[in-house]
Computed example of a mutant assay.
Amino acid sequence: MTTAAALVEVEPGGMRELHWHPTTDEWQYYISGTGRMGVFAAQAAARTFDFQAGDVGYVPFAYGHYIENTGDEPLVFLEMFRHPRFEDISVMQWMANTPHEVIADTINVQKSIVDGLPNTKQVVI
């Protein structure tokens, strides 16, 4: 079995940006701190989970999710994948690289807002 992993540290008040993994499920192991994860599925189904050190999280393949630090110390966790390569798609990067008129019309905002989105991935914000 081949695996890929990422060690993520999120400062208090920060979050792991809304994203999804196009290749496989994600397993998480929480090392320190406290956090909350929102997971989004098809047909407007969403769940929220709270985590602390020693907990294990799971996100099914291609489900959108974010993780925020809810404590006053760094949130540290390990993301693990049963795949030879770590891959993710950030919602901001995806929107910034889609025709801006399409995004603005779809989410009903001014095009200038979409024009200001970063077109490079910001894993932790």
Rank of each mutant, 00 (worst) to 15 (best):
P22R: 03
P22Q: 01
T23S: 10
T23H: 06
T24V: 12
T24A: 11
Q28D: 08
Y29E: 04
I31M: 06
I31D: 00
R36V: 09
R36A: 12
M37W: 03
A41H: 13
A41D: 11
A41F: 15
A42S: 15
A44I: 05
A45F: 10
T48R: 10
F49V: 10
F49Y: 13
F51Y: 13
F51Q: 03
Q52I: 09
V56I: 15
V56A: 13
V59Q: 01
P60L: 07
P60V: 07
P60T: 07
P60H: 06
F61T: 07
H65G: 01
Y66Q: 11
I67E: 00
I67H: 00
T70Y: 03
T70A: 03
G71D: 02
D72T: 14
E73T: 13
P74H: 01
V76H: 01
V76N: 01
F77Y: 15
E79D: 14
M80E: 01
F81N: 02
H83I: 06
P84R: 05
F86S: 02
D88N: 15
D88Y: 12
D88K: 13
I89H: 00
S90A: 14
S90V: 06
V91Q: 04
M92D: 09
W94I: 08
M95Y: 05
T98Q: 07
E101K: 12
N108S: 13
Q110G: 15
Q110P: 07
Q110C: 06
K111T: 10
S112E: 15
S112L: 11
S112G: 12
V114I: 15
D115V: 08
L117Q: 06
P118M: 08
N119Y: 10
N119E: 08
T120W: 14
K121L: 12
K121F: 12
Q122L: 14
V123C: 10
V123H: 14
V124G: 08
I125Q: 14
